[in-house]
Nucleic acid binder design. Structure first.
Lengths: 122, 122
DNA sequence: ATCAATGCAAATGATTTGCATAACC
DNA sequence: GGTTATGCAAATCATTTGCATTGAT
């Protein structure tokens, strides 16, 4: 019954796209696991705190998660049809965000950037 | 009893920061209006569809709204303490997003960009 | 035996919907 | 009179919490 956190991590690792907690729960149950939805949420919260997975929000406000290959700061290019996701870097954006903040006297500037499109398969 | 949509628009216009539907409802009720929460949501949905207000999501998934000065594409620099918001442009970001999408064969590329910081008053 | 992990059910909180009423033309 | 806007209460949906149970040490 243990290792639920690992189950969740594995469910995410084997996947190219962002999934919601509900998706992951459904996947695991479909695969025969008796995991509870609560545990999925707790595992995801824990994994996101340690930085092992990235979290973002859909336009509908649902949280979606993905296992990331790198610990470094990066952004995502997501296919709006199939969810396929590419991790991208953006030095230009980092600089721009910092500059914009400084220009208006803001400190401790952070930013969120997500890019959506339709991938070549669709 | 009519003109609710206008009440909501006005509540947003007189405000420098992003507000949630619940905030606006509270503001209007506090100001003596007998508007219903449902109507606030309906007005906000309508206003955002016509592009009169901008919508984004907090990290907690709550939708927040703001009346924007311009119809043109732009982004926001938001103070994480007081919510004060500055509309900013980012040609560099627009180009970067388009380039990143093209590089990976994505079509119809769009993007969301928000910048957060602590403003000079805090 | 003890402490942490787990699951189920109930609670929360934002948002939406059903429906009857009131305002508008 | 017929359509549209409004509000209240109930319904949804994702997510969280209370609590008793189970697993690991």
């Amino acid at each position: 019954m243990s290792g639920r956190r690992e189950d969740v991590r594995r469910a995410l690792s084997g996947c190219e796209s962002f999934r919601s907690a509900q998706d992951i729960y459904a996947d695991l149950r479909a695969a025969g696991s008796r995991i509870g939805l609560t545990t999925v949420y707790r595992a995801l919260q824990s994994l996101s705190e340690t930085g092992e997975v990235d979290v973002l929000r859909t336009d509908e406000g649902e949280a979606i998660y993905r296992a990331c290959r790198t610990d470094e700061h990066h952004h995502h290019l997501v296919c709006r049809v199939c969810g396929r996701t590419v991790e991208v870097e953006g030095p230009a954006v980092e600089k721009w965000a910092a500059a914009v903040g400084a220009e208006h006297g803001f400190r401790d500037v952070t930013h969120t950037v997500e890019v959506f499109g339709t991938c070549s398969e669709h």
